[in-house]
Design a protein around this nucleic acid. Structure first.
Lengths: 207, 207
DNA sequence: GAAAAAGATTGAATGAGTTCAATTTTTAAG
DNA sequence: CTTAAAAATTGAACTCATTCAATCTTTTTC
């Protein structure tokens, strides 16, 4: 038996996720009613709740897919970063930022972040948090890689530095999505300024 | 005329805020119904909404009062910080953390933060964001003060460093309130480790 | 292949936050 | 003091998100 039940389940799950993602994009998160999502996915409201704990949950699921892409695209940069410390950090971080608004609006980010904070125990919030952790690790890995190459001084705690740089950029991104008027360019600029001191200080002195 | 209307307004506002704060403390945020808050404040539900845009708003207002106290208590440390850079930073930050759970539960922090993210335009969210900015400035001021004293090297961008340290501790605090199992002690420990590299690097070398 | 068990779906009912037209209270004008 | 205008209050009605007992579908058992 291939499992009819499993197949139907996977199919319904996909339909619900797609229905929600498209509706969120079309009318925004708040105006998308569960009833509408269910209708578009051709299931009942009750079934929706069988697949997702609540409305916020499905948004976080949508966002998680996005973060996964960002994570993937960062891999290449960590594999083979530019030589200078500050430049390497900026290239990776700008990559993160550039990806952020391709599929998601600031409003969607706000709601997703708010949900993951408010209900940290829900399965999709856990996934979001876990992905955040992996992004953080990626930054630490970059610092470590630069250290192996000699661009960053030995003896520096790469993990600690990576966490601080990541937490800073994450908080700055949060400010960015909170402020509709703030541009991507000004976000990058500000974070670049913040990264400069630490990047210079951890770099090996030129001989 | 002293303005009967103004007096009544201030009084109602105080009653609503106190009713909400006490109810949140007694039964938690979710279980406190607007109807109950209104009843305890001796106003109608409609009046509640005349003073606060929504339920989250009044929690953010409560939390803001708390942050104001933290800000105040930090002043003394910035005025006269310990000599060593890392120690000075830790004393200030631990002070922040110790204050955080005196009146507010993790659940209340989560909801307040989530609300201020989701509705950044509401008046009380603005206030919360502004207070966060002032906390950030306080950390920058500390770095600057240490710089004037010679503990931190001249030429370091104190504002940039302060922002990074603050954003990091803020994000770590967010992780802390998201995780019911995480203790205050382990939060402090982790942040201390993260602060160590930057604190050492910006410090003036011992002669 | 029939019957029982397990797993999913369903949508009407529930409940809490939010709105708004009617009403009351306060202030300003004559 | 009376009256008109402005400001606030009120609570019943409304809108969704969420729940759950009844029903239907799939799987397992014999």
């Amino acid at each position: 038996m291939t499992g009819l039940r499993a197949k139907q389940k996977a199919d319904r799950n996909r339909r619900i996720l797609e229905a929600a993602a498209s509706l969120f994009r079309e009318v925004g998160y708040d105006s998308a009613r569960i009833e509408d999502i269910a209708e578009r996915a051709e299931v009942s409201v009750g079934t929706f709740y069988n697949y997702y704990e609540n409305k916020g949950d499905i948004l976080v699921a949508t966002v998680s897919m996005e973060v996964e892409e960002v994570l993937e695209s960062g891999k290449g940069i960590v594999e083979n970063p530019p030589g200078a410390t500050l430049e390497a950090l900026q290239v990776l971080i700008d990559q993160y930022f550039d990806h952020s608004l391709v599929y998601l609006s600031k409003e969607m980010w706000r709601t997703a972040m708010a949900t993951s904070i408010q209900q940290p125990e829900s399965p999709f919030s856990r996934r979001y948090t876990e992905l955040d952790g992996r992004l953080c690790d990626q930054v630490s890995m970059l610092v470590h890689k630069l250290q192996l190459r000699g661009a960053v001084m030995p003896g520096i705690d790469a993990i600690a530095v990576g966490q601080m740089v990541f937490n800073n950029l994450n908080m700055m991104f949060l400010e960015f999505v909170k402020d509709e008027a703030m541009t991507l360019a000004s976000l990058k600029e500000r974070v670049a300024r913040q990264n400069k001191p630490i990047a210079i200080l951890i770099s090996s002195p030129r001989i």
